[in-house]
Design a protein around this nucleic acid. Structure first.
Lengths: 337, 337
DNA sequence: CTGAAAGCGCTTACAG
DNA sequence: CTGAAAGCGCTTACAG
């Protein structure tokens, strides 16, 4: 079943059928009705390959997700899918490893599938700096700030990671904590974790707290298993810590179990704060105090901006999405020494 | 940059370039080398739209995931992605609502994108029975059994849900539990939850335990929030229950928090068993006793079978993948009355 | 082994 | 408002 069959069946020419299908204004009402009737009756769907070939058109919107176990991204992705479905865009999703080079992957994808735009869930600025110039379609980076890169086709929406991490440290400080350990992140690359760590260091310094990253910080990937191991290592090595800041909720969830297995209690013996605000934090015992990133907002602004940039040329936008510190049950007060 | 440019640059004709690109045997070594050199030098990638149009070819393998919050599926999906990446297949992933009609979606996708095969993560047999005849490409259904449907192009790999649910009830019985509540699932449609529920009922009957689904079972979707609400409702209504069986781990995680909020302890006051064996069950407090579905095995056999069916015609296979009851910390013993 | 040519299914100036 | 025709980039019988 092709457009040719529809033409024959409807008594109109190829061209007219195509125009009806594409909602061209210059078609008579009669032709429109007749053709649509045949299309309906036959359940005809135009061949996308031919259409794209002719239009030199790009196909779907590609979403590159860094880290398949990242539950924050899962939540954002769910909303993106639903928003793009509403606007009838095709979506192509790929999961990459947490430490993969997402821009390199995107460059490959451009050659292979010609997506009309990219949505990056997570991204390493270093990769963008190195290879992003090869990409010319509109792109949006979520949960990291692309302003410093200055690419004309790359917008970004992110939480202010440095401020949020600072807010966590201040919050712990107000509750009397002076010896705070930090879990997670990767110092080798310019990922979001670096900014959070910078927020920690700045704020510690401002509050006059000593912070020796070598002893008080254990890097790890964003998983419960690594959070568990990192917390154990840190607490065994530095038993005088009264609070932990995990740079991701999943790390915190693993850490909470590690604390329990060390015979300690949250928050009586050790306080802990997470980052992201995923669902799980509202159901674990105790509920996890955490920084909530606004997944709905990130998804909505990201999709909206990408679609606009695809349809009309727009300068890039860089927006900061508000975060909130959700005070749950995992932080206790201690007497500052 | 098209094949025409490569022809010009290499001094060979269009046809020869195409033959080189497609690894046809009837090309001289000289032509092959010269053409490949130019292709390399120019970084040429053939246009997929044109190629597919000409070949009438299907494109990617489509993976339809039922329920974006399903962490078991997330684990299976991660493995599928990596396996298909190794075999250089393109993957198209779509998340559907837990209660969506996945077969209807697949039928749409066939018209739109002509995938060369489908991998269904979760599926409602009723939908398959009604509409699957419209799909002719090879398909694999994971976590449900398609044998009873008898479609020649639909294989399936699943845990024996009825047996696994039965094993849970027996396990609780051996620990003295006689009054057992069940959380989750949807009785309206022929989803996997129905089989688990049947396993519960059969085994209860065999053990001589009364089971009144109307009072002892609260259906809910597979999320922590719904698990929380369902558990609260059930325990407030039936305070004499000593154990809960949640038909999914996420439901169990929500339920554990509900139990805590009711002032009860797991497993001292209430025992609870989950289903799926997701990562979280190894880190929550207490660790959740659960049925482990073998995600690695499901993914591996599913992908392998689908690829074979795509490349050579094969009769469908229906396999049962072994489950395991992971005895963790959420079940206690009680004195049977 | 290679080139010239047809055709996959569609869109869109160009005429009328 | 409509039809005839060119052409998007590729593959593959068909000749030679």
């Amino acid at each position: 079943m092709t457009i040719k069959d529809i033409a024959r069946l409807s008594g109109y020419s190829l061209g007219t059928v195509s125009r009806v299908l594409n909602n061209h204004p210059d078609v008579s009402q009669a032709a429109r009705e007749r053709v649509m009737a045949v299309v309906q009756e036959q359940g005809f769907e135009p061949n996308t390959n031919a259409r794209h070939l002719k239009l030199q058109a790009q196909s779907a919107i590609a979403v590159l997700v860094k880290g398949s176990q990242n539950l924050l991204f899962a939540g954002i992705l769910e909303r993106i899918q639903s928003l793009l479905q509403d606007s009838e865009e095709e979506v192509y999703v790929a999961y990459l490893d947490e430490d993969a080079d997402e821009v390199q992957y995107a460059v490959q994808l451009v050659k292979l599938r010609r997506p009309k735009g990219f949505l990056f869930l997570g991204g390493d600025l270093e990769c963008f700096r190195r290879e992003f110039h090869q990409i010319t379609v509109p792109c949006v980076l979520l949960t990291n700030d692309a302003q410093s890169l200055g690419f004309g086709n790359l917008s970004s929406f992110t939480t202010d990671d440095t401020a949020a991490a600072g807010a966590v440290i201040e919050y712990l400080y107000r509750h009397g904590h002076r010896r705070i350990g930090v879990l997670g992140g990767n110092l080798a690359s310019e990922q979001i974790s670096l900014k959070r760590l910078r927020g920690v260091q700045n704020t510690m310094q401002r509050l006059g707290l000593p912070f020796d990253a070598r002893s008080q910080h254990v890097p790890c990937r964003f998983s419960m298993a690594e959070g568990y191991a990192a917390a154990r290592r840190l607490l065994e090595r530095e038993p005088e810590l009264t609070a932990l800041f995990a740079l991701g909720d999943v790390i915190a969830l693993g850490a909470m179990r590690a604390i329990y297995d060390l015979g300690l209690r949250v928050p009586e013996d050790i306080s802990i704060v997470g980052y992201d605000g995923i669902n799980e934090t509202r159901f674990c015992i105790p509920r996890l105090t955490t920084i909530r990133q606004d997944a709905a907002q990130l998804a909505a602004r990201g999709v909206q901006t990408l679609l606009q940039a695809i349809h009309y040329k727009h300068p890039p936008v860089y927006e900061t999405i508000d975060f909130a510190l959700l005070e749950h049950e995992s932080v206790g007060s201690v007497e500052p020494q």
